[in-house]
């Protein structure tokens, strides 16, 4: 009993970390490679989750849905919808400094959260959408099937993002991040590259949202509070190492270990301290983020700089 309980917890832990790892990889495309600030991760995450929930969940008279499409359709639609929203925001902000993008993304995330909270016909308001099926195998042992699926997804996303980073495309993104004017002078369409990076990263976040919806089986606006879906992901990427995809995954593991470890500690406190304990945990992660920024800004795994092609002797 003890052992199987521990095993079950491990499956849950790894599935959650995998979803966060995908979010952190998405943010790494935007922040790590291109230097774009997205404070609205929660918004793209929510759009992905709700898209697949509406398309795959069973019928419910209270809101649209009941299409019962398979997981693949829901996930693909989640990627497309979050990508489209990113195109809209991106087109407005690509030619401005990244501060404006940061401000625009908190705006869009707030609006998205409010739409899902308020539009009963679409998302069933605060009561949320339930009965979102586990993909491929629903029922006994579905946790293991899902873990295998989500680990495979991390591997695929990692491969894609790492491939993009090493490709000429990723080189242009890093060039834009480090010196925009020089990249422009070299004849690259800076705005187009920025837009592509923002949309690519946001689509990955939408995909993570779809996985989350199928993992938990129930979503409501509470799950997309900026603290959990935006702030923790930033802490993961900064701690792991901005610009390093392995770092993004490592950061997801470490920060989630800290987060759930403190949850275990908080559970030992008397229940009347529950709200204080959760505030203290957020405080702790905030302090952790600041300490990393101050003491080790490159993160646990620093970005791997490409080797110079040839070194001149003079």
């Amino acid at each position: 009993m003890e052992l199987s309980g521990l095993f079950g917890y491990l499956v849950f832990f790894l599935s959650t970390v995998s979803i966060y790892a995908i979010l952190a990889l998405g943010l790494n495309v935007q922040w790590g490679l291109t230097g774009q600030i997205n404070i609205g991760i929660a918004g793209f995450f929510a759009v992905g989750a709700y898209t697949t929930a509406i398309l795959t969940a069973g019928p419910n008279a209270a809101h649209v849905g009941g299409f019962e499409f398979p997981f693949v359709v829901g996930a693909a639609a989640a990627i497309v919808t979050s990508g489209l929203i990113a195109v809209l925001i991106g087109m407005i902000t690509v030619n401005l400094r990244s501060d404006y993008l940061a401000i625009a993304t908190i705006g869009i995330a707030e609006i998205i959260r409010f739409v899902f909270q308020n539009e009963q016909w679409l998302s069933h308001g605060v009561r949320g959408i339930s009965d979102i099926p586990r993909p491929f195998h629903d029922g006994q042992g579905s946790g293991y099937v899902f873990l295998a699926l989500v680990l495979a997804c991390v591997a695929v996303v990692y491969f894609l993002v790492e491939r993009a980073r090493l490709a000429p495309w990723g080189r242009v993104l890093r060039a834009i991040r480090d010196n925009e004017d020089a990249t422009e002078a070299a004849g690259k369409n800076v705005r187009l590259f920025r837009l592509q990076a923002f949309v690519f990263g946001s689509a990955i976040m939408g995909f993570a949202g779809a996985l989350y919806a199928h993992f938990i089986g129930f979503i409501s606006p509470d799950a997309f509070e900026p603290v959990f879906a935006t702030f923790i992901v930033w802490a993961m990427l900064i701690a792991g190492g901005s610009g390093n995809n392995k770092g993004a995954i490592l950061g997801a593991i470490v920060v989630w270990l800290v987060w759930s470890g403190t949850e275990t500690l908080a559970a030992r406190l008397p229940p009347e301290y529950a709200t204080q304990a959760s505030a203290a945990r957020v405080l702790l992660v905030g302090v952790l983020l600041e300490l990393v920024l101050l003491l080790r800004p490159q993160g646990m795994l620093p970005e791997e700089r490409p080797r110079p092609i040839a070194r001149r002797k003079d």
Binding site: A102, V227, G286, L289, E290, L293
Partner: peptide
């Protein structure tokens, strides 16, 4: 980096 730091500080103050 200052912007991100201020975002983190916002969370610290709030919690």
């Amino acid at each position: 980096i200052l912007l991100i730091s201020s975002f983190g500080y916002a969370l610290i103050l709030r919690s």
